[in-house]
Amino acid sequence: MLFKKSLIKLALFGLVWAVAPVLPLSAFADGADEIIKKVEHNLNGKTAVMELTMVVKTKRTERTMKMESYSIGNNKSFIKILYPGKDKGITFLTVDNSMWQYVPRIEKTIKIPTSMMLQSWMGSDFSNDDLVNESSISEDYTQKLLEETDKEYRVELLPTEDAAVVWGKIIMAVSKMYYLPTTVQYFDEEDMLIRELAYTDIKPFGDRFYPTRWLMLPKEPQKAANKTIIEISNAVFDAEVDESYFTKRALKRYSK
């Protein structure tokens, strides 16, 4: 998964988009559904290979990491850390809902236990679960267009009864020009804003446009000083990706 998948998942776009779900009968319903469909199409690909930089800021520290990510569809991904040197060669593999990690310093592959899935991933404001979770907007949420301005649509996403997502509500702003998300706000059940993800700096990669800067801002008071920025420096979509990346052996093999 990693990056592509996580990207997609984070924003809840990752779907292999099959048949449109049952639509609510609101006046905007068709509109919202269409919008999300296009967004998903624009963010989605059969495969993705990316290079990216992640900057994690807290009240007192700032760290930069570089990594590359390979993914196929929605449920397989592989990430390798390139920088800093101390962490170079650490690899992550996610297949379906499980996650493994290889650490060259200890020459060990570790399966991340369920109890750790909600812990922070590499100290960032993303959790392990964000990377693994296969939830998808089309399957897990009902969509409703809240507002339309000159530049953006605002779509409200409410989890369906069956969706195993912690959020009570997500509000996504979508750029009319690119049909890509600009901001995604995550709320709890009491409508309290928990975190906000902003996508900016849209650039062309081959035949598609893609947001290259993501900013995650936690909104809970105790984490208010934190933020995580991901910048995508290079991306290739829909190229052939070697299946051998998505095995446990790859963790060690591609670590070097």
Binding site: D96, N97, S98, T114, M117, V132, P159, E161, D162, A163, A164, V165
Partner: peptide, 13 residues
């Protein structure tokens, strides 16, 4: 969420 019989993580709301 919990590990199911196949050691996959499964979740339910």
């Amino acid at each position: 969420s919990a590990q199911d019989r196949h050691s996959d993580v499964s979740a339910a709301p």
